[in-house]
Write a protein that binds this DNA or RNA. Sequence first.
DNA 1: TTTGACTATTGACTCGAGTAGATCCGAAAT
DNA 2: ATTTCGGATCTACTCGAGTCAATAGTCAAA
Lengths: 350, 350
Amino acid sequence: MVSMTSTAPVASHGPVTRKDVARYAGVSTAVVSYVVNGGPKRVAPATEAKVQDAIRVLGYRPNAAARALKLGSSETLGLIIPDNSNPFFSLLAHAVEDAAAELGFALLLTNSGGSLTKERRHIRNLAARQVDGVFLASVLFEPDLEDLAKADIPCVLLNNDRETEGFNSIGVDLAAGARTAVEHLLWHGHTRIGLAMGTNVSNDIDGRELGWREALRDAGVAEGPIIHSDFTRLGGYLAGQRLLAGPDRPTAIFASSDMQAIGILRAIHEAGLAVPGDIAVTSFDGVADAEYSWPALTTVEQPVRAMAAAAVTALVGAARHEPAQHRIFPTALHVRQSCGCPDGNAPQGA
Amino acid sequence: MVSMTSTAPVASHGPVTRKDVARYAGVSTAVVSYVVNGGPKRVAPATEAKVQDAIRVLGYRPNAAARALKLGSSETLGLIIPDNSNPFFSLLAHAVEDAAAELGFALLLTNSGGSLTKERRHIRNLAARQVDGVFLASVLFEPDLEDLAKADIPCVLLNNDRETEGFNSIGVDLAAGARTAVEHLLWHGHTRIGLAMGTNVSNDIDGRELGWREALRDAGVAEGPIIHSDFTRLGGYLAGQRLLAGPDRPTAIFASSDMQAIGILRAIHEAGLAVPGDIAVTSFDGVADAEYSWPALTTVEQPVRAMAAAAVTALVGAARHEPAQHRIFPTALHVRQSCGCPDGNAPQGA
DNA sequence: TTTGACTATTGACTCGAGTAGATCCGAAAT
DNA sequence: ATTTCGGATCTACTCGAGTCAATAGTCAAA
């Protein structure tokens, strides 16, 4: 190589655009696009090589904003959850991110903090950002999706066990799950089973409360005390204290979330009582924390990864205007020690 | 209201654009922009009212992709963390999201899973998406930021205690924090203090190991056993088992993360030993889980929210090409029960 | 009534990439 | 030697919003 006067030096100012690549490779901009996208037109192998070379040398990355503008798709999905520091939701977010990445979508994460105002603001914001879809773990059963509908942005409701006409949704059978957990306590011989129930913004009765009630009724056992409190460790702790202080103390407690159960365990320990000896505990969600509490929690696990994958599938389907689907996943009882089973090998059924 | 024939019905096909608003309000598109942005030119109050009206009626939201293309800014930041289901990182992500939202930025969340390949892929992807900045909690001490540099995208390294020339970074003083935790164990009279250390991809020695070593040396106490394992509950559990099975069992253990400590607690419980009676434990991070373990963990807390806020500030500064800054935050020892303090009111110093 | 000094508004170009339609060129068919 | 065909390539318009230079409009002073 005698000189390099024929190939222009890298311009270096500002980001590299398609035009720069075209100039460097000595072709038109259209060809560059065709090469980058395996475009709608074929390109001669020799030309393709030149272009690929130019791309490599210049370090060209197509501008996503321009692409999004032209194609009307940002290859981005939005996720709205109440609180990413809650283990259940952080696990869900992780699973959704993985499933979305699988299909080349990036994930815009937002926390609503359980506030309806914030939730609404985030929805509008995501709509303005031209996301291709939104996953919403709403604080309400029927969130306001008008902004999304206007922009023709599909949405799937996460963590939602009720079917609502025209809404895509993914959830678990809360009532059935709760039933399994309570039935397991009944199987252990308990007859005074309390409930620590989380509080939702909506006033509708939660499926877990229903499941608890049904299991007791079917077993012909009187309902134990119910305490409503936050779906948090602290909420569980406070609920636990009240449950222990009440007139006739339950011998077993079903908690509507693992976080609450962890708070309850603490309240029980502080009262100098033993789990499961004095009080047995089962709970809901199946997050990692449950396995490492002391004693390990017998809990009803939600198949989070499967749900996340299904959510992404549903969203893609919705984007193609396929009819809304509602999927309910089954839960699985993980028997560990907090229920009274000595080694976690007790019968899973009944 | 007699009729509504005078106001044109909403066009309804496709998303509403600036042009639609302009037509509806009977003005030019430029005026619409001026109104939306408090634009570079003034608009007569009467006209502004007409435009605002049109915007409200039509439900207009400016197209973020077009904006991003024109302005070269997507009002979006990227966050790369190893694992959003790890409580420390999910807390960090939440804090960063809040701080970013404060300034009108949305957050693109990605999980590297501790893999360098994935980390690199995510960096390229974020660069292509024209994010305005990237927060990176890297698996390495000197990650490859070439793609970001090329695109002139600022980056701040999170969870980073080493200063590296030309890199913005935020972190805590790992060594000092570890020191406090170990010194507290020494104060309790322990002289055989083991270390459960997490494993990093890099082979550099971790600040926490340094702090542990220094504290022991300064106290004239021989080094206890070290076990290296994952920064996870399981990692801690396995490390705990090995620490207990070793030739001369430590009477206290310092764990490099709360997650590990939680695993260790379990190993100790399973061995039929008491915490802190037989073995005292202290750890690092200060996540919520530490407060609700049994016994509650004495831990060195990282000021996550303050760090997140500082990270956002640093990123904004870097975007203005201010010189790179490196901020180290102090940690705070939270005394609870796992160390042997009966009520959590023990001296914080020494 | 004209000029000047503004202000409000508009037209038109731009950002970077996708792609339809036009054009170019070489080889096979006549 | 033409004509025809078809693949390769290029030209030019588009997406939606920001913004400057030019224009229209308004009112007070001369």
